[in-house]
C-alpha cells in the first residue's frame, strides 16, 4: 500500500476520489441542515464530477495512444457542441465536414509525436484550406463571420485542447524516485485548472463583493479571482516536485499562469455564450451544463502551460 501510494500519480488519483467523497459528504450534510432546500444542482454536479474523473483516469492510466483517443474524443464532443451552438451558413455544410476531419489528423500528429506538424497543422494548413474551400462554394454573404466562427471553434476546441494530449508525447524525465512523465504533467495541468475553477467559485461565494467583469460574467468577483489564483499558485508550488520538472520559482509562475489563464478562458467562453444568447453551452454534463462549460478554462490554460514547460525543459 505504501509502495503504491509512493507513486505520485496514484496518490493524486486517490486524493481526487477523496475530494469527491468529501464533496458528496458536504452535500449530504447541507441537505440535512436545510431540509427545505433540495440541492439538486449541487448533487448532480458532484455525481457528474465522478464520471469526469473516471474518464480522466482512463486517459492518463494506460499509454499515449489511449490518452490521445480519449482527448481526441473530448475535442470532437467540444467542437460538436460549439457548432451546435453557433449559427453557421447552410452552404458551408461540406466545409464543416472538412473542419471535423482536422480532429483525427491533429490527434494523429500527437500520437506520432510529430511536433512540427502538430504545431502548424491547424493554424496554417487548416486555417488556410477552409476559406479556400468556402470561396469555391462562392457565397460571400456572411463570409468573414463564417470563417471566423469555424476558425475560433477549431482553435479552442481542437488546437488548444490537443496541447493536453501532446504532454503525453513529451519524453520521460528521471527526477525523483518515479520520474516525470507525460501523465504526471497532464494530471498537474488538468487538476490545477479544474481546482482553480472550483477555488475561484468557493472564494467568490465566501468573500465575493466586487464584480470582476460584470458585463461578461456577472457571477465573477475580484475576491474569487484573487483567492482562486492564490490557492492555485500555492498548490502548483506544492505539487511541482512530484509532477513536473519545474523548480520552485518556475512552479509559482506556472501556478499564476494557470490561475489567470483559466479565468480568461472561462470569461472568453462566457462572452461567446452571451453573444449567442445562451447560458449553458449544452446539456451533456448534468449539473455543469455542456462540455465546453467544463473545458473553457483549459482552452487557455493548456497551450500556455504547455509552452511554458516546453520552452524551459524540453
Amino acid at each position: 500500500m505504501t509502495a503504491w501510494l509512493a507513486d505520485p500519480l496514484n496518490t493524486g488519483v486517490a486524493t481526487l476520489f477523496g475530494l469527491i467523497l468529501l464533496a458528496g459528504a458536504v452535500t449530504g450534510l447541507l441537505t440535512r441542515r436545510h431540509p427545505g432546500r433540495r440541492y439538486t444542482e449541487l448533487k448532480l454536479r458532484v455525481r457528474t464530477w465522478v464520471f469526469i474523473i473516471a474518464v480522466f483516469v482512463v486517459a492518463i492510466a494506460f499509454n499515449r495512444v489511449v490518452g490521445v483517443m480519449v482527448f481526441g474524443l473530448v475535442s470532437f464532443l467540444a467542437f460538436k457542441e460549439f457548432l451546435t451552438l453557433v449559427p453557421t451558413r447552410r452552404v458551408d455544410y461540406s466545409v464543416l465536414i472538412w473542419a471535423y476531419l482536422a480532429i483525427p489528423l491533429q490527434y494523429y500528429w500527437v500520437a506520432a509525436g510529430w511536433y512540427g506538424m502538430f504545431i502548424v497543422f491547424i493554424p496554417v494548413y487548416v486555417f488556410l484550406f477552409l476559406p479556400m474551400r468556402m470561396v469555391m462554394i462562392g457565397d460571400t454573404q456572411g463570409f468573414l463571420r463564417a470563417v471566423g466562427t469555424i476558425h475560433w471553434g477549431l482553435m479552442t476546441t481542437v488546437f488548444c485542447l490537443s496541447h493536453i494530449a501532446y504532454l503525453l508525447a513529451l519524453p520521460d524525465r528521471t527526477m525523483g524516485p518515479y520520474g516525470v512523465t507525460g501523465a504526471t504533467l497532464v494530471f498537474y495541468l488538468v487538476v490545477l485548472t479544474e481546482l482553480n475553477d472550483v477555488a475561484q467559485y468557493i472564494w467568490g461565494k465566501l468573500l465575493g463583493r466586487h464584480k470582476a467583469i460584470a458585463k461578461v460574467s456577472p457571477g465573477k468577483t475580484v475576491e474569487g479571482l484573487l483567492g482562486g489564483v492564490a490557492t492555485t499558485t500555492l498548490l502548483a508550488w506544492f505539487m511541482a516536485p512530484w509532477f513536473t520538472p519545474l523548480n520552485g520559482v518556475e512552479s509559482l509562475a506556472v501556478g499564476l499562469l494557470i490561475g489567470i489563464a483559466g479565468f480568461i478562458g472561462d470569461v472568453v467562453m462566457s462572452a461567446v455564450k452571451r453573444d449567442i444568447g445562451v447560458k449553458d453551452s449544452g446539456a451533456m454534463l448534468p449539473g455543469h451544463g455542456g462540455i465546453l462549460d467544463r473545458l473553457d478554462s483549459l482552452t487557455f490554460a493548456a497551450p500556455l502551460f504547455f509552452h511554458f514547460v516546453y520552452y524551459l525543459h524540453y
Binding site: 444542482e41 454536479r45 475553477d197 472550483v198 475561484q200 467559485y201 468557493i202 467568490g204 460574467s217 456577472p218 457571477g219 455564450k273 452571451r274 444568447g277 445562451v278 447560458k279 449553458d280 455543469h288 451544463g289 462549460d293 467544463r294
Partner: peptide, 14 residues
C-alpha cells in the same frame, strides 16, 4: 430557442 436572460445570480459552473 432558449433566450438566456442573465438571472440576478448567474449560475456558476464550478
Amino acid at each position: 430557442a432558449p433566450t438566456a436572460e442573465p438571472s440576478a445570480e448567474e449560475k456558476h459552473h464550478a
